[in-house]
């Protein structure tokens, strides 16, 4: 069970809540396949509301809900009321009247998911809000680390690339701080937001120095669509300085793993061959873990309701 009604940010989760989400997610792995034996969300309605283009996360939430037995509705954004001028909060009120059991929302503005959550009765999962947070991504990264390295504490983690525009970076920083891991951020100064060291991370502008002896290398996607120009000079120079390749990877621990939230820009932030090297790259495992984490989050946020339904049937 989670303390809050919604999952809006990692920051509002306690360490034990993080652990319980991870453990619950782990319980969906059966013979290395993710399944749910009980359809705990049977007759529940889940609405996915993605104001920003997404395929992976949206599909992941859709499958997660479906595996748990929920009726999943993808709100058709492109021809939705947004183009008719309806405000965000009116839309929230409309959806609320349809009595969904859970809403999964992605929005291009920081804080927008929270704004909607304040106006609806059901739990809301933040599937990414602006540059703010993407909590399920951080949780699935933890689960992947747990499965691959065997522990989620006492780790040195490097997050590389476009930190400024990355909600994945923020959620991971907050998450690993809670777990007591050491976090480094690596990138050009233009993509490192001000005073990030005050959030308890070490900043490196030189990738080789930053990668020295780390256990986990997280490579971020260069969010070209979020940039209004002038953050770096060219993609080839970016790859030379901050693209993860064999040469730079040698400075990390020999056992170090490579993570990427996807979708990848091969040859810009990561070398294509390295991304495919399954000895190091856990990128496909991350996608799988994403499914388990999202199932876990959906179940735990609806735990009380699930139990009420159960008791109703028993009585």
């Amino acid at each position: 069970m989670l303390n809050n009604k919604d999952l809006l940010s990692i920051n509002e989760l306690s360490e034990s809540e993080i652990i319980s989400i991870i453990n619950n997610a782990n319980s969906y792995y059966h013979d290395n396949k993710i399944t749910s034996k009980k359809k705990v969300l049977n007759n529940f309605t889940q609405i996915n509301l993605f104001f920003e283009n997404s395929t992976r996360t949206q599909v992941s939430f859709e499958i997660a809900g479906t595996l748990l037995g929920a009726n999943v509705v993808n709100f058709p954004f492109n021809n939705s009321s947004q183009s008719k001028g309806e405000t965000l909060l009116d839309l929230a009120a409309t959806l609320n009247s349809m009595n969904p059991d859970i809403l999964v929302i992605r929005h291009p503005d920081s804080g927008a998911v929270q704004l909607i959550s304040e106006k609806v009765d059901c739990p809301v999962v933040n599937a990414g809000d602006g540059n703010h947070e993407h909590p399920t991504q951080a949780l699935l990264d933890i689960l992947t680390i747990k499965k691959r390295i065997g522990r989620i504490d006492n780790l040195k983690i490097a997050i590389c690339g476009d930190i400024a525009h990355s909600r994945v970076a923020r959620s991971n920083i907050f998450c690993h701080k809670k777990l007591g891991n050491k976090i480094r951020v690596i990138g050009p100064k233009t993509l490192i937001p001000k005073d990030i060291d005050k959030l308890g991370v070490q900043v490196f502008y030189n990738m080789i120095e930053g990668l020295r002896d780390v256990d986990v290398v997280m490579v971020l996607r260069l969010q070209k669509e979020r940039m209004d120009g002038g953050y770096f000079s060219s993609e080839r120079e970016y790859f030379h300085l901050y693209g993860l390749d064999d040469r730079k990877m040698r400075y990390a621990k020999p056992s170090a793993i490579i993570m990427h939230p996807g979708p990848m820009n091969r040859g810009i932030e990561i070398d294509g061959d390295l991304a495919d090297n399954l000895d190091k790259s856990v990128i496909t495992m991350q996608v799988e873990a994403g499914l388990a984490i999202r199932m876990s989050v959906l179940e735990l946020l609806l735990k009380k309701k699930i139990e009420n339904v159960k008791n109703y049937h028993i009585n």
């Binding site: 540059n131 703010h132 937001p193 959030l199």
Partner: peptide
């Protein structure tokens, strides 16, 4: 304003 707060909240600053 650019700061640890704006960084944490993911706000343009």
């Amino acid at each position: 304003t650019s700061s640890a707060f704006a960084t944490k909240m993911g706000l343009s600053s």
